[in-house]
Amino acid sequence: MPGIFVYADTVEACASLISAAYGSARGVCALTFDEKRADELGGYGADKVFLLKGDNPMQESYAKAIAALLAKEGPEVFLVGSSTTGREIAAKVAMYLDCGLVGDISSLAFEGGKTITTRYIYGGAAIQTEVLDGYAVVTVPKGKFEARKYEGKTSDVITLKVESDNRVTLKETIPLEKDSKDLGAANIVVCIGMGFDKKEDMKIAEDLGRVLGATIGCTRGIVEERHWLPAGSYIGISGTTVKPSMYISLGVSGQIQHVVGIRDSKIIVAVNSNANAPIFMAADYGIVGDMYEIIPLLTEAIRDVKV
């Protein structure tokens, strides 16, 4: 029963991939390292579950073993959840199997034996449609597909002992500072751009954030050039992707690499002194003018509304 194999480093992400694969009318087989919850995957629609067992805490170290399993089982497509770990496994597996890999797709469809994907390129300025004719690896961003439960459905769990590559060893794990986790899930985001002259000036943005109950984010330059905020705070293709109901950019020019990280926002507001700033093309509402004057006015106006 080849078909579609899925792997993600959490059960939730794995369940979301199963639901993406489910529509293909092919068998779905899930791979997991989660011993305690492996049997839940059947309930999400997996026809078969491989519980992989090994001693190495780094799941990346099993890429070769996973490739060997796939080579033996012969699935048509391998869907992988796009985490740091997942991407590495996907890339290595694709190399071991000498097949194509499309990463971080924004849509996925199965058409008569072929897999059709779209993904952003050029920092999000363009969208590319690719066709994979069987035997390919695709990585899928978190939350792209909603997991569904199927009452009464179960599947066999086959336990497999797998060998790891122990040349990279884990010395220490440090949980990430809370900030950046919040940013991705924030309902309102206020974003600080390079238009701010001094670090102290960020206070007016923070004041605005406070009345809105917003989480503060920023552009890459604020983190990497100015070092005003921690690395987890920047929004964009190489940073965090946000999907708030409202995103307000302050002094953000709107480079495409940033804009791609805010596209899922419901409403985008931009304040910038340069009428030609590209952020206005990405915005629902724009105000051209001196943000040092506008931000405090906006803070006041919102405070009035909230009272």
Partner: peptide, 11 residues
């Protein structure tokens, strides 16, 4: 840098 943690590794 991973999604929810930082790891220190050796090779």
């Amino acid at each position: 840098k991973l999604d929810n943690r930082t790891e220190v590794v050796k090779a």
